[in-house]
């Protein structure tokens, strides 16, 4: 039993410190399977995988180039649109300015007209008033003359004189003048 274990240990001990890598008896085996593996991987890569990936990468490059061109085009369009917008904005501003000044001028004319009309009305009213005042003055003068003549004639009569209408009139007129 003991010797058996020892023998097994010895066998293990012989295998363990040595490198299995330097056991040349299985090199032919490893090299054979390595060559098989390399050939298979080579054909898998060169026949299927690499052309496929190259095609995908080329396609992607093409797509990216196209997309960049499209993006440039859109960018130019956007710049154009912005210019148009700015131009429209400037036009609208100028138009608004024009409308404002027109409206101002119109309002000014209307105002002037209304002022002139009001002035004319005021002048008319004034003239009318003056005329009325003149009329009233004239009629007052007349009344004063009549009253003065009557009064004078009465006074003369009361004083015992004989009132001569012509003389009275002349005296009143003379007085009134001055």
């Amino acid at each position: 039993m003991a010797t058996e274990t020892n023998a097994a240990d010895a066998a293990q001990g012989a295998a363990a410190p040595g490198m299995p890598q330097l056991d040349f008896s299985n090199w032919d085996h490893q090299i054979f399977w390595l060559m098989v593996t390399l050939v298979v991987i080579y054909f898998v890569l060169s026949r299927i995988a690499l052309p496929r990936i190259a095609a995908v990468l080329a396609e992607r490059q093409g797509t990216i180039t196209n997309d960049i061109a499209a993006a440039d085009e859109l960018k130019a369009k956007a710049v154009e649109a912005e210019e148009a917008y700015n131009k429209a904005l400037a036009d609208a501003r100028a138009e608004a300015q024009r409308i404002i000044s027109e409206a101002k001028a119109e309002i000014q004319t209307e105002l002037d007209e209304a002022t002139a009309k009001a002035d004319a009305e005021i002048a008319e009213k004034t003239a009318e008033g003056e005329k009325k005042i003149a009329e009233i003055q004239a009629s007052a003068m007349e009344s004063v003359q009549v009253v003065a003549k009557d009064t004078a004639a009465e006074i003369v009569a009361a004083l015992g004189g004989k009132a001569d209408a012509k003389t009275v009139n002349a005296a009143v007129a003379n007085r009134m003048k001055g």
Binding site: L34, V36, T37, I41, V44, L45, I48, A49, A55, V56
Partner: peptide, 23 residues
């Protein structure tokens, strides 16, 4: 070694089988 072949094939062939522009 066979597993290595399988792994290479899985990545390089199955992985690219859809040939997607957006991978």
């Amino acid at each position: 070694m066979a597993l290595a072949i399988a792994a290479v094939a899985a990545l390089m062939i199955l992985g690219t089988s859809r040939r997607a522009v957006i991978p």
